[in-house]
Design a protein around this nucleic acid. Structure first.
Lengths: 213, 213
DNA sequence: ATATTTTTCGACCGTCGGTCAAGTGCATTT
DNA sequence: AAATGCACTTGACCGACGGTCGAAAAATAT
């Protein structure tokens, strides 16, 4: 049973190795032996730290999200800052870690059927939405109480925004041109502003999100 | 090279076999030999009709969508029917084929990491959104011209609705309780009604979609 | 009847994810 | 100092899988 002592070293070594390999190959084409080799350890050791190959990927994605998740939770508590500012900060925090991590894949790997990336992207979607939803819901609720936002379903609103943002920014789930992505985001902003009765322009920071190339 | 003559017989036989197996197992646990056995043909023959295992799944999903897609395209042209009615019909058409096909998996298979289903679900999402978007956009555009809908981004609106509906109904992408799903859909309806300035209740048929258990 | 093409097939191959018994070093006990 | 126990490491090994192949059978043409 791995302790949380020096074992973390090897544990993260494995994660690092996978992350590196992910930059140049698809998961399906990365073998466990390969990960072991890159990490400089024996294949058997991998299974001392992880129960399966999938679990390594799970852990890597989870690790990639630790930081923005903490930020999100902190933001939810900062009631003195305007809800809109906090939302903007939250999305900002996400871009600096995880999304960059996803992006690497699309560009590098030869563009065979995007199918191979499905594992990665589904995990990504599931994670970001389910983990970020509570924090965003809280922020929205506070906005409603303040009278800044007018809407009856804060949790639903949070989920809708997260789903659209996530799906659209992860361009391999629904490959579109940058122009189309931009149109959808602008549409989302317009829909939100009209639907929640906030002043036009209040949510425009959302479209900045699309600039991550 | 398979002709499109009598070959279709075997071709569809293979697809049928996979569809049947999909009802009781996850794709990852279905071997090509198993498909062949179920179809009553030799394993080698599979590769006479399909280049790879993935291609079989692709073809099956595509086949599952032929019917609703036709319906959608027809609906887009039926300008004499109200846009709202046509939208309701469109979503109705989808439920009778593809969604049922997806649903089967979630219930039956033992709930190991949803990872295994990723292939299926990503394909599903990509397909339904990208194929249905043009038709739905067209319907919305007509609604805007009629003055029934007030919104500046018809394509974005179509995409947003499709993404949310698809992701939320495919409960294995973001597993939630039925109550939560319902809340999100109600929130979506409220957001749409307020955001597009249609009378409350006009879009309530969308939440019926969640009743497919 | 013969030649030619299309279709069928299962034995076979290389690879992969995962297991395991054997081993290595290190701290603690005796 | 020797023995014991324990956390950790390892690569040979296993069963299973996706995919290939050449040969045979079926269908078609001549």
């Amino acid at each position: 049973m791995p302790d949380t002592k020096k074992n973390e070293k090897k544990y993260h070594l494995i994660l690092d190795a996978l992350q590196l390999l992910l930059e140049e190959k698809k998961i399906q084409n990365i073998s466990v032996s390969e990960i072991a080799q890159k990490a400089g350890i024996g294949k058997g050791s991998i299974y001392y730290y992880f129960p399966s190959k999938d679990a390594i990927l799970d852990a890597l994605i989870e690790r990639s999200y630790e930081q923005p998740l903490l930020t999100a939770k902190n933001l939810a508590a900062q009631t003195e800052i305007s809800p809109f500012t906090r939302m903007a900060m939250l999305f900002q925090a996400c871009q600096n870690s995880s999304i960059a991590f996803i992006k690497q894949n699309d560009s590098s790997s030869d563009n065979t059927s995007a199918q191979d990336l499905a594992f990665l992207h589904q995990k990504y979607l599931t994670h970001v939405v389910s983990e970020l939803k509570p924090a965003l819901t809280e922020i929205i609720k506070q906005g409603i109480e303040n009278g800044d936002i007018h809407f009856d379903y804060p949790a639903a609103l949070a989920e809708i925004v997260l789903i659209i943002i996530t799906v659209k920014l992860d361009n391999s789930l629904l490959p579109t041109t940058p122009a189309e992505t931009d149109d959808t985001l602008r549409g989302l902003i317009s829909l939100l502003e009209k639907g929640t009765e906030v002043a036009p322009g209040t949510l425009s920071y959302l479209s900045l999100t699309s600039y991550i190339k």
